[in-house]
Design a protein around this nucleic acid. Structure first.
Length: 564
RNA sequence: GCGCUAGUGGCUCAAUUGGAUAGAGCAUCAGACUUCGGAUCUGACGGUUAGAGGUUCGAGUCCUCUCUAGCGUACCA
């Protein structure tokens, strides 16, 4: 349930009762446990505006709020903070509603259509670590948006066009290699082709001609090209499947798909006098930057900015998106800023369409350098995943209690889960320092701690048998806080939704799990001497916690295990 | 050169977007067990938030300058 918006409304009425009208009331979670559950800090700002005493405003407001049975305590502190503590009964009444497959989270009142552009690997090469962050961050926000009710369209803007394919085609023709080659061979061919391209002018020209043939729709060239793409996509699909990422072939709309629209985009931008010629190329200049974006090269070829503009136009005008999220590396910030600006200038997107660059930092090794293999090459995503699963096997405590099959499954869930969780649990905007040991650690804010908490609760619930789902009676402060944490899942998800920040979900998960562990340490459930009423209430708390963990983990694309 | 982004205990990260005494985990040290799964929990130690100014009731957060690092800087994506 949305606790915050409920409180906002309550405070808003209290303000009105005091004759104060303001645009937006914001109640926040308390910064410290001693301050209660929530706090309203608006009195200070109001006092400034109304030129009165903040303490006085706060007192009057508190008096009004105190009458509401939702609070067990309302107090004014410091210069005019209003600290709010929720009444147990309110929490008790709502806890049972969280025991469904949405953990009590309702859908948004005003869902919109959203395009999430993520993963976007280059074809003819294997996916490598550079694609990991976009793929899992993008998938998480797509899951989250979808869960909250938005109409999400996933778009995999694969790099399937351009000079590189001309090169590849030329090399295949030259070397007479078998087109049925595996992707790993294809990648080798790509390297060799690149070398030929750099050393031979003749080869380079041939490659460029191939690009022209490709763009012109030459059947032979296209056939060869589509074979490359098919193989590359099959490889990408394997990766998505093992990462538990919901991308499939229906989401693929690569650069090639926009090819036919590019000349019109350029013409249109020229007509609108947004683009102009400079040094033989068609460019768009900006006041605040010395660098233009180039939409057509001097030789007539198009560039990725052109494709991106065509994509925006398509997504907004054809797909009807009101929010378009580009989950792309932070280095492209300037590119997107300029492309978005151009899209607005050209009216491909109007002002109520949100174009967002969901930027993320680089993946670095422990010493702060780009994450590479020992010999300095790029780390293939497949290798990374295999190693994660392999290492996970070594971490599982009761490995001998499981069959090989079970162990494989657990290792997969734990390994992949850890790989994803450690990435998603930090603010995406900063660089991510990748560390195997930390990732598979049992302590702290890790996937394993969460998996363990879930399995442990599951064990209790199994032992307890059927649970009477009656309204609980919350005992001590820990129980009250745990119930509140479970109920605040929706507020958390809404925050993560607004900012497209997955780590907000993992922070919540960690707080929830630690709170449960503390509660459980102090408050026995199935031991002797626990009254029936206490037992039932605590079981419901445990069940609600497990359910919230499961729903949250699923949102970030991680499975739970009944046993671990 | 210009531009963008960042700089928070030894390490890895938070900080509800301007709120109260800057919070966690790791590491270190000290505790709690005939375990409802101890893969747990409880403490302690550790900070001039890179530095200097400024804005105001109030700054890690906003502004200016300096330092440091990374990235981007015209026909790759």
């Amino acid at each position: 349930m949305q606790i915050k918006s409920k409180l906002n409304n309550i405070v808003n009425s209290a303000l009105k009762a005091n004759g104060i009208e303001i645009e937006e009331v914001v109640v926040n979670e308390a910064t410290k446990v001693e301050f209660g559950d929530y706090q309203y800090n608006g009195a200070m700002a109001l006092a400034k505006k109304l030129k009165t005493n903040p303490r006085e405003i706060a007192q009057n407001l508190a008096k009004e709020l105190d009458g509401n049975s939702i609070f067990s305590k309302v107090e004014v502190a410091g210069p005019g903070f209003i600290n709010l503590t929720l009444d147990k009964e309110f929490l008790e009444q709502n806890l049972l509603n969280t025991l469904n497959n949405r953990a009590g989270v309702s859908k948004l009142n005003n869902p919109i259509k959203v395009v999430v552009d993520y993963s976007s690997p280059n074809m003819a090469k294997q996916m490598h670590v550079g694609h990991l962050r976009s793929t899992i961050i993008g998938d998480t926000i797509a899951n989250l948006f979808e869960f909250l009710g938005d109409d999400v369209i996933r778009q995999n803007h694969i790099g399937d066009w351009g000079t590189q394919f001309g090169m590849l085609v030329a090399y295949f023709e030259e070397s007479g290699a078998n087109v049925d080659a595996k992707l790993s061979d294809l990648e080798q061919f790509y390297k060799e082709a690149k070398q030929r391209f750099d050393e031979s002018e003749e080869f380079a020209n041939k490659s460029r001609q191939n690009v022209v043939r490709l763009q012109g729709g030459d059947a032979e060239t296209l056939k060869l090209w589509s074979t490359f793409i098919e193989k590359s996509l099959a490889h990408a699909q394997d990766i998505y499947n093992s990462l538990n990422v919901k991308l499939d072939s229906s989401h693929v709309r690569g650069e090639s798909w926009y090819n036919s629209q590019l000349s019109n985009i350029v013409k249109d931008l020229e007509t609108k006098e947004i683009a102009k010629e400079s040094q033989g190329a068609k460019c768009i200049f900006f006041e605040d930057s010395e660098n233009p974006i180039i939409i057509q090269k001097a030789d007539g070829g198009y560039l990725y900015a052109t494709t991106d503009l065509a994509a925006i136009k398509f997504r907004v005008q054809e797909l009807g998106a009101k929010r378009v999220c580009y989950v792309v590396d932070a280095r492209q910030a300037e590119h997107f800023k300029q492309v978005f600006q151009t899209a607005k200038d050209a009216e491909y997107a109007n002002n109520d369409t949100k174009l967002e660059h969901i930027a993320f930092g680089m993946m670095l090794d422990k010493s702060g350098r780009p994450f590479k293999t020992r010999s300095g090459g790029t780390v293939k995503l497949k290798e990374l995943i295999d190693e994660a699963v392999d290492r996970a096997k070594g971490v599982i405590n009761r490995a001998n209690e499981y069959s090989n099959e079970e162990l494989e499954h657990i290792a997969k869930v734990v390994g992949i889960g850890s790989l994803k969780y450690s990435d998603l649990s930090i603010n995406r905007q900063s660089n991510y320092i990748f560390d195997w040991d930390k990732m598979l650690s049992l302590d702290g804010n890790t996937a394993l701690y969460m998996q363990y908490a879930y399995a442990r609760i599951n064990s209790i619930l199994t032992k307890a048998g059927d649970i009477a789902e009656t309204e609980p009676t919350l005992g001590d402060e820990l129980e009250r806080r745990l119930a509140l944490k479970v109920l605040s899942l929706e507020d958390t998800l809404i925050k993560a939704y607004k900012e497209a920040m997955p780590h907000i979900i993992t922070s919540y998960l960690y707080e929830l799990a630690t709170l449960f562990m503390k509660f459980y340490e102090q408050n026995p459930i199935l031991k002797d001497g626990v009254s029936q009423e206490q037992k039932e209430s605590r079981l419901i708390l445990a069940k609600a916690t497990a359910n919230a963990i499961k729903v949250s983990l699923n949102l970030i694309g991680i499975e739970v295990l009944e046993r671990i």
